[in-house]
């Protein structure tokens, strides 16, 4: 019987018969105390991937319209990395305290998910978005605005000559809005 389940027993002598009678002073079983185990270890396992996903998805849905936060994701990268850290903490708690296999599995899967998702995001930020063709020599040599025709949002034909004698700012953008 494990030590924490042992009942403390004492003997009391029956005053009439003189026999020793066992009495149980305590039947409560004490659970082993482990101060290093957090009460909400499972919360760390769940919180890691959630923080990572929130940090990354919010970049596209919330912060992309703000140039200061879009050009360099000051908020999103730390959030995604924080998610990875929390996930790894979840693994540490699970294995240190010999949690059930399913919990350890959850912790591993969550950490793998956070790390993969964050890695993809970092690749997108630091490598993928720099993959652009070189500006052509002809573009650099352009001195005069060439004649061109396009269609505006009302379906009207637009000629560059329509803007003769006007200053022009021509912005090329990727679209898909």
């Amino acid at each position: 019987m494990p030590r924490h389940c042992q009942h403390e027993k004492l003997l009391e002598v029956d005053r009439l018969s003189g026999q020793a009678l066992p009495i149980v002073l305590s039947t409560r079983t004490e659970q082993p105390q482990n101060s290093s185990r957090p009460k909400n270890a499972f919360a760390w396992i769940i919180a890691g991937p959630i923080i990572s996903v929130a940090g990354i998805v919010s970049y596209f849905l919330v912060f992309a319209p703000f140039p200061f936060l879009r050009d360099t994701p000051w908020l999103n990268v730390p959030l995604a990395l924080l998610g990875c850290y929390v996930s790894l903490k979840g693994i540490a708690y699970s294995f240190r305290n010999r949690a059930r296999r399913i919990r350890c599995g959850f912790a591993l899967f969550g950490a793998l998910f956070s790390l993969s998702f964050t890695s993809l995001f970092l690749f997108y930020i630091n490598s993928m978005s720099y993959q652009l063709p070189e500006t052509s020599q002809e573009t650099a040599r352009l001195k005069q605005l060439p004649e061109f025709a396009a269609t505006d949002q009302h379906g009207n034909a637009f000629l560059s000559s329509d803007l003769a004698e006007k200053n022009i700012v021509l912005v090329f953008y990727r679209g898909h809005w």
Binding site: L142, Q144, I168, V169
Partner: peptide, 22 residues
């Protein structure tokens, strides 16, 4: 199109072209 900006003055002379590297 890649993101770029071109500015031309009233005479049609291109004064500035900017194409970001990212």
């Amino acid at each position: 199109a890649r993101p770029a900006v071109l500015i031309a003055n009233k005479t049609g002379q291109i004064t500035w072209i900017a194409a970001t590297s990212n």
